[in-house]
Write a protein that binds this DNA or RNA. Structure first.
Lengths: 209, 209
DNA sequence: GGTCGTTTCAAACAGACGTTTCAATCGAGT
DNA sequence: ACTCGATTGAAACGTCTGTTTGAAACGACC
């Protein structure tokens, strides 16, 4: 039942999905949804929570002896494949992404149990990479990483039209993992920057402004 | 008429908005929409195009003698205030953002006339900053910049809940402009990286992997 | 002033939707 | 075997939607 509802809500959204089609998919009667869940909105909430429970969990933490840089690379790779899932997203991932852009009452539990743990692990990695920075900076850095990853999913249709389907297809998960990781590490001074063959380039140019 | 439709579509979305309240807002009769535009979908398309025409245009190109780094800073500042518009978005900006996430037939014109020009200006700036990189890298770099900016808008509700309203409010446009510009320039080797007080830090650490 | 194409108006239509109703069915407890 | 609460079933209800209708009002032109 929740499976059928989740798939339908993920495909069509809350407004687009109808309780009739959901019940047909589940082989249930129309009245079952109101009997078991009350109304359509509560069914949606339960479907979102079900998507979180049955969806891909967070990969276990790395050993403490791997470098923060490697840690970040693994985080980005896992985020791109488990949350963004550009290639073949499951309905769990699609539905949770929908809830991120258009939050409902289910978003509170989703933030608490799925989003915040991921976010704090990322913040922890960045804190290890930038020991001196304050909380505001760590938050902004975390959003910079997550924003880069989510962008390919949230604006996929437009981005694909923007650069062409072939060029967009060449931005495959492996390349993006490399790119986002290196982009971030370079911004943090842990990898050689783009656009320069030598690191002396860094000190030759002045700081911004 | 298009004004009323645009405001309503921006607030409620295509499905949420009804032709009745649009006509009420515009002081028009219900049949006017079908007489002038054919149906609701074509009205929406015209409203999106109207939003693009009357919305904030792209600021003029910088002089050729300002540095690419300054150019990037102006681009990010303009993008955050004209496209993202975290503080007080007009319905034009909201409607075009909706069209980015949920594209309709109007998206083709929107990409051609509004999005691609902005994107190519950004690509041009990044190309000047990274003379050696190929097209794929420039595209990924452009998406990294745009993704950082749009993230605060597209996942605003969730991000606000994630870090708390006060902390989210501290990420004001000035701070974000600074952060995203510096983050990007540091990744490109044009600004000192985060997490290190001295530039020698860069060469002390090894490259990734 | 009359005429004709254009625009406005109130009303209604047809369909889809979430929800409700109430009788039928089931299943465990005694 | 009976009973009673829980569940399922088909049908209908009420509402809201986009769309259509046909008459009325308007405005320029001869």
């Amino acid at each position: 039942m929740l499976e059928a509802a989740g798939e339908e809500f993920a495909e069509k959204g809350f407004d687009g999905a109808t309780v009739r089609v959901i019940c047909d998919r589940a082989g249930m009667n129309l009245a079952a949804v109101n009997y078991h869940f009350g109304d359509k909105e509560q069914l949606y909430e339960q479907a979102v929570l079900h998507a979180h429970r049955c969806g891909p969990g967070m990969p276990p933490a790395e050993d403490a002896n791997v470098s923060p840089a490697e840690d970040l690379r693994h985080y980005v790779a896992a985020f791109l494949s488990n949350v963004v899932a550009l290639q073949s997203p499951t309905w769990h991932q699609t539905l949770m992404l929908r809830e991120m852009v258009n939050p409902t009452r289910a978003s509170e539990a989703l933030v608490r149990e799925a989003i915040r743990p991921r976010f704090e692990r990322l913040s922890g990695i960045l804190r290890r990479l930038c020991p001196g920075e304050d909380d505001r900076r760590i938050q902004a850095l975390s959003f910079s990483v997550v924003g880069q990853c989510l962008h390919y999913k949230l604006t996929r249709s437009i981005s694909e039209r923007l650069v062409g389907a072939e060029a967009f297809g060449r931005l495959d998960p492996e390349y993006l993992t490399d790119h986002i990781t290196r982009f971030t590490l370079a911004a943090l001074g842990e990898a050689p920057p783009f656009g320069s063959m030598t690191e002396s380039h860094v000190s030759r140019k002045g700081a911004l402004k």
